[in-house]
Simulated scan of single mutants.
Amino acid sequence: MGRFDKYMLQQLLMLFGFFSLVLALVFWVNRAVGLLDWLMGDGQSASVFLQLSALSLPTILVNLLPISAFGATVYVTNRLSNESELVVVQAAGYSPYRLARPALVFGLVVAVMTAILSHVLVPLSVRELDLRRDEIAQDVTARLLQEGTFVHPAKGITFYVREITPNGELHDIYLSSSLADGERQSFMASRGLLVKEEEAPMLLMFDGMAQVYELESQRLSVTRFESFAYSLAGLMAEVRVPGQSTRATTTTALLARDLSAENLATANSRMNKALQSLAVTLVGFGALIVGGFSRFGLWRQIFLALLLLVIVKSIDNSLEGAIERDPTLWPVTYLSTLLGVVLGYLLLWKAAHPRLRGTRGAGGELP
C-alpha cells in the first residue's frame, strides 16, 4: 500500500470514528430516555442503568456503522477533491480504480467490524440484556423499598412504607392486595422486614392488623397479630429462560441448532449487514469521483451519493420485511448489497472513461 493509500485510509478511519461516536450518542440518548424512565420507576440504581446502556450499544453500533462508513467516505473524498489532492495523484497516473483501493480496504475493515458485531457481540449482548431484564423483573425489593411513596409493583398490589432504617427495618407498613378472588386483603404493621427466601421473598410484619373484605357478602374481618409472614411470590414476574431466542443466539450456534429457513434467513441477514458497509462505501466514493474536479465543489455528486444510498437502503428494508413474512425468500437478502456494489463499479467505470460524458466539468477533466 502506497503512501497516499495509507494517508487516505487514515483519514477515512479517523472520520469514521468521529461519525460513529456522534451517531452512537444520538441513538443512545434516544434509547436511554425510555430505559431511564423504566428503571427509575422500578427503583433501580444508576449502576444498573449504565450496565443496560452498555449492553444496548452493540445493537446500536451494528445498524449505524454502514452509515458512518458512507459519511466518512463522502466527507474525505470531498475534502481531498476541494484541496486538489485527488487532482495531483490523478495527474501522477492514478486511475479511478487505483484511487478506490484505500476506500475498498476501508470498506472491508468496516465490514469485518460489523460482521463481528452482528454474528457474535450483538447476540451475546441481547442475551445478557434479557437476563438482566429478568433479574430486574424479579427484584421485588427495589420496587417495594421506596420511602413515603405508594407503589404498585404488580396489578392489584399497593404498598407503602414510611421509613427504612439503615439496618433495613421497615416502619409503618401498609399492604393492600386484591389478588385473591372475591376478597380484598389489607395489612398494616408498625414494623417489618423483607427477607429473601429461596423461592420468593417474604415480608415479615410485626405488631399489626389484617383486614379481609369479602366482596360478595360485603363482610369485613379484622385480625390483630404480633407477627405475620406474607409471601411475595405473587409479585414475581414469570421467569423466562434467557438466550433461547433467535436474536440472542450467535450465528454458529444458530446454524448448529438446525438449518431451518428462519435460521438461514437470520444468518444471511447478519452477513448482509456486514457486506453493506463495503457496498455503501463504494457508492459514496464512486459518486464523488465521477464528478472530476470543479472549483464550485461536488454538491451535485454528494446529492447523487445520498440519493443512491436512500435507494439501496430502501430496497434493503423492503427485502428485509418480505423475508420476515416469508423466510424461504432468504436468498434475495443480498440483492440490495449487490446493487450497491454494481452501482459503485459503474460509477468508477464512468470516471475512468471521461470521454463518454456528454459535457465536461466546470474545471475540466484530466486526460
Rank of each mutant, 00 (worst) to 15 (best):
L254G: 03
G17P: 07
A305L: 04
D130L: 05
A267F: 10
L144Q: 09
V342M: 10
F106Y: 07
G284P: 04
L288A: 10
R132L: 13
Q211T: 11
L366R: 12
G321Y: 11
E199S: 11
L57P: 00
N82S: 14
L61N: 08
L55I: 10
L170Y: 05
V22F: 15
F70L: 08
T141P: 00
Q218N: 13
V195W: 06
E199M: 01
Y174C: 00
T249H: 03
G93D: 11
A237H: 12
P153N: 03
A115R: 04
P201D: 13
L21W: 02
N263M: 02
V22W: 08
L343P: 00
R224D: 09
Q276D: 10
E216G: 02
H152L: 01
M188W: 06
S20K: 01
R247F: 07
G361M: 09
W349G: 00
T158R: 09
S176F: 09
A352T: 09
P242G: 08
G168H: 10
S231A: 08
L80E: 01
P166F: 10
N63C: 02
L282K: 01
V283H: 07
L259Y: 14
L9T: 02
A111Y: 11
F293Q: 06
G93K: 09
G2F: 03
G344D: 05
R295H: 08
F4T: 03
